[in-house]
């Protein structure tokens, strides 16, 4: 029985192990390490205040949801020129080459990261949560506050865009 909100020692034990994941998501959302640090700090302090309302299941998704909300409120109104125009109707490019060949044409490790950073935010976050944080569709849906079906289609559009990007750069 917790007297008046959960002790903060619990907060440190539950939330701080997910600090790296929080920072990674913030970094990919803000595309700026300094802004990401600010977002994570704000989000963690908010999480600390709301901790008594936390029910104890899946702290990582709970925390990342707060990080995302904080990041989005910072991003509101700020449109980044790096956000490429995105055509969701575009089909996958001709897969005549083997995927290895296509992707190997694009040399340099930063290329894929740059392409990921250029994705629209709602596609980028899905891919980061899936590929880098290895979260399930259900948890991604929780963090991004959309239905699982939307997660699936966003994830697909994100991957499609990166695959297409690999081919056009070739």
């Amino acid at each position: 029985m917790k007297p008046a909100g959960a002790p903060d020692a619990d907060f440190a034990r539950v939330a701080l192990p997910h600090l790296d994941a929080a920072f990674n998501l913030a970094r990919w959302l803000m595309r700026d390490p300094v802004a990401a640090e600010d977002v994570v700090q704000d989000a963690m302090l908010r999480a600390m205040r709301f901790f008594s309302g936390f029910r104890g299941e899946n702290p990582r998704a709970w925390l990342l949801q707060i990080v995302r909300t904080t990041a989005y409120s910072r991003l509101a109104g700020v449109r980044d020129a790096r956000e490429a125009a995105f055509d969701p109707a575009a089909e996958l490019a001709d897969p005549a080459d083997t995927p290895e060949v296509v992707l190997q044409r694009v040399e340099g490790e930063a290329v894929l990261a740059t392409a990921l950073a250029a994705l629209p935010t709602e596609l980028r976050e899905c891919l980061v949560l899936r590929e880098l944080e290895e979260m399930s569709y259900r948890d991604i849906a929780r963090v991004t506050e959309v239905p699982i079906g939307t997660v699936m289609s966003r994830l697909f559009r994100a991957r499609e865009a990166l695959l297409r990007h690999g081919k056009t750069l070739a």
Partner: peptide, 28 residues
């Protein structure tokens, strides 16, 4: 390729220290 090439950076140590201290001092 994503998992091999897009490396997640850990949270800065200064941030971790600040948050650890904030949790220890108590919720504001």
């Amino acid at each position: 390729r994503l998992r091999a090439e897009v490396v997640a950076e850990p949270a800065p140590e200064t941030l971790r220290r600040r948050l650890t201290a904030a949790a220890a001092v108590g919720r504001p």
